[in-house]
Amino acid sequence: MALRHAVLAALLDEELSGYQVTKAFAAGVANFWHALPQQVYAELARLEKEGLVAGREVVQEARPNKRLFHVTGEGLAELESFASTAAKPSFLREDLLVQVQA
């Protein structure tokens, strides 16, 4: 899985700002995929440049304007391709898993 797929998946249900994507990412896939907020913002910029997400600016009173992002048709196709590709097996070496087994 690439960060791009995790960010696209975070945007599937609704339009989100970069801050909200970071929060959704932390609540959703952070247990098995870690990314810093700066990485998420950079990935959003790349995805928008590639046409996989689209953003729009929302003007707010007494607060800075924010940008909301949503997945485009091309982004959905990218996620469908990712989801249909066989995953590479990974090997976990985690003390907690051994403790649970014991």
Rank of each mutant, 00 (worst) to 15 (best):
M1T: 02
R4H: 02
L8S: 01
L8W: 00
A9V: 12
L11N: 06
L12S: 15
L12I: 14
D13N: 14
E14F: 10
L16I: 08
S17R: 07
S17E: 10
S17D: 13
G18P: 02
Y19H: 12
Y19E: 15
Y19P: 04
Y19R: 11
Q20S: 14
Q20P: 02
Q20N: 14
Q20D: 15
Q20E: 15
V21I: 14
V21W: 10
T22C: 14
K23W: 05
K23Y: 04
K23C: 11
A24H: 06
A24D: 04
F25K: 07
A26S: 14
A27H: 12
G28Y: 06
V29K: 02
A30V: 11
F32P: 04
H34E: 15
H34R: 12
A35L: 08
A35R: 09
A35Y: 11
L36V: 10
P37R: 08
P37G: 04
Q38Y: 12
Q38W: 09
Q38A: 15
Q39H: 15
Q39K: 11
Q39Y: 13
V40C: 08
A42M: 14
A42K: 10
L44K: 03
L44F: 04
A45N: 07
A45H: 09
R46F: 11
R46P: 02
R46Q: 11
R46C: 02
L47T: 06
E48V: 10
K49I: 00
K49A: 09
E50N: 10
G51N: 11
L52T: 03
L52C: 04
L52S: 03
L52I: 06
A54H: 05
A54M: 03
A54G: 00
R56V: 06
R56N: 07
E57T: 08
V58L: 14
V58N: 09
Q60C: 05
Q60T: 01
E61I: 10
E61D: 09
A62Y: 12
P64Q: 08
P64W: 00
P64H: 01
P64M: 03
N65D: 14
N65Q: 03
L68H: 01
L68Q: 08
F69H: 13
F69D: 04
H70F: 01
L76F: 13
L76M: 15
L76S: 06
L76P: 00
A77W: 10
L79T: 10
L79Q: 07
E80Y: 07
S81C: 08
F82L: 12
A83Q: 13
S84F: 04
S84P: 01
T85G: 05
T85E: 09
A86H: 04
A86M: 07
A86S: 09
A86F: 08
A87F: 01
A87D: 03
K88D: 03
K88R: 04
S90A: 09
F91D: 07
L92E: 09
L92C: 00
E94N: 06
E94K: 06
L96F: 15
L97R: 01
L97K: 01
L97A: 03
V98D: 11
V98S: 09
V98C: 00
V98H: 01
Q99D: 09
V100I: 14
A102M: 10
